[in-house]
């Protein structure tokens, strides 16, 4: 299947998901769905580096928080529409990922993992000490209740004249989207983009290069694969996607404080989800994120949020020990067993 076809199909699936959520017409569906979609993006982004090249990033929370705090900064400095903020958040996190990778990826893999773990602590220290973005007190982001689809920038985009707006006036209630649904839609688009990128990489020369690094980096280097450059590409893409996932977060949560943006649950989830789904293919993080994300939403409501984190941790440990190739590996083993 060509990437373009895949993109069209996933856009269609995304449209169905959105329409389905509209049919239920319950704000909670959008709130919970946003979180699950956010985890799809994070897990897919983590997997581009972790699953494809085998380098473990423990700092997902740091990249995510960079995106979120880039948004807070711009919100105070000069409010921009969220799509622009997503691009900015992605750029900031991508650059940090590149820098981190450049300093540590020339060494053994473990050093990179440790450095990413420490990066979260340091960035949190920086944010706590930076009063402009709220410091340790946190920052409030006031968002409108709804967003007109024919907003100023859509007007520019389609060159709609003011008198034409008067013309569609009677239908304007259908063109106004509650803000939660707008955020949900944006995250849905990001998930489609992330999955398409991941799948595109998997089937390209880049993906084969990544796989050689994962299987035997020394042999890859010796056969002329530019391993450092490939690793840097992976770190940058992965970091950028995490930043993009973080950029709308302040508008979603309304009040951002360092401990929520840098929460360890982002790091553990973005590792646990690909590990549980399966790391070798783009489907793995998707399955893991949907399963684990929904499970967590249910557990948070029915039991407590601490217990749901415990479940994630225990599942992660259980899966890496018992089913090292995740759910995909289990399914493959099962179908292969049946074929025999």
């Amino acid at each position: 299947m060509r990437t373009r076809v895949f993109l069209l199909i996933s856009i269609a699936v995304a449209a169905l998901v959105f329409l389905g959520a509209r049919m239920v017409n319950n704000d909670y569906v959008f709130f919970a769905g946003y979180t699950v979609l956010q985890f799809i993006v994070l897990a897919t982004a983590w997997n581009i580096l972790g699953g494809y090249t085998g380098y473990v990033n423990f700092g997902s929370a740091a990249f995510f928080a960079l995106g979120a705090y880039a948004t807070v900064f711009w919100h105070k400095f000069y409010p921009l529409p969220i799509p622009f903020l997503i691009v900015i958040g992605g750029a900031v996190s991508g650059i940090v990922g590149l820098g981190m990778g450049y300093l540590t990826l020339r060494l053994r893999g473990a050093f990179f993992a440790i450095a990413t773990l420490a990066l979260a602590v340091v960035l949190q220290t920086l944010v706590v000490n930076w009063d402009y973005v709220g410091g340790s007190r946190g920052a409030y982001i006031i968002r409108p209740n709804e967003i007109p689809l024919i907003g100023p920038y859509v007007q520019y985009l389609f060159l709609i004249q003011p008198n034409e707006i008067a013309l569609i006036g009677p239908y304007v209630q259908y063109l106004v989207l509650p803000y939660v649904q707008y955020l949900f839609l944006l995250m849905l688009a990001l998930a489609v983009i992330a999955l398409t990128i991941a799948r595109g990489i998997e089937r390209s020369q880049l993906g084969y290069g990544f796989a050689t690094i994962r299987d035997d980096e020394l042999a890859a280097e010796a056969s002329g694969v530019p391993t450092l450059r490939l690793k840097l590409v992976a770190t940058t893409i992965s970091g950028a996607l995490m930043g993009m996932a973080g950029a709308p977060f302040p508008y979603y949560i309304g009040y951002l404080q360092p401990s929520s943006a840098f929460g360890l649950e982002y790091a553990v989830n973005s590792i646990a989800m690909p590990m549980i789904g399966g790391t070798t293919s783009w489907v793995g993080p998707l399955i893991g994120a949907v399963l684990l994300g929904s499970l967590q939403q249910i557990a948070t409501v029915t039991i407590s949020s601490a217990v749901n984190l415990l479940i994630v941790g225990l599942l992660l440990v259980a899966f890496v020990i018992i089913a090292p190739n995740g759910i995909i590996g289990l399914v493959q083993g099962w179908t292969r067993g049946r074929a025999k």
């Binding site: 972790g50 085998g54 473990v56 423990f58 893999g109 473990a110 993992a113 360890l264 790091a267 553990v268 590792i271 646990a272 590990m275 790391t279 984190l309 415990l310 994630v312 941790g313 225990l314 992660l316 440990v317 890496v320 020990i321 090292p324």
Partner: peptide, 14 residues
């Protein structure tokens, strides 16, 4: 490399 690290990370978290 990948799973052993994740194992310890999970242990830390749990």
């Amino acid at each position: 490399a990948l799973r052993g690290l994740s194992f310890f990370f999970g242990l830390l978290f749990v």
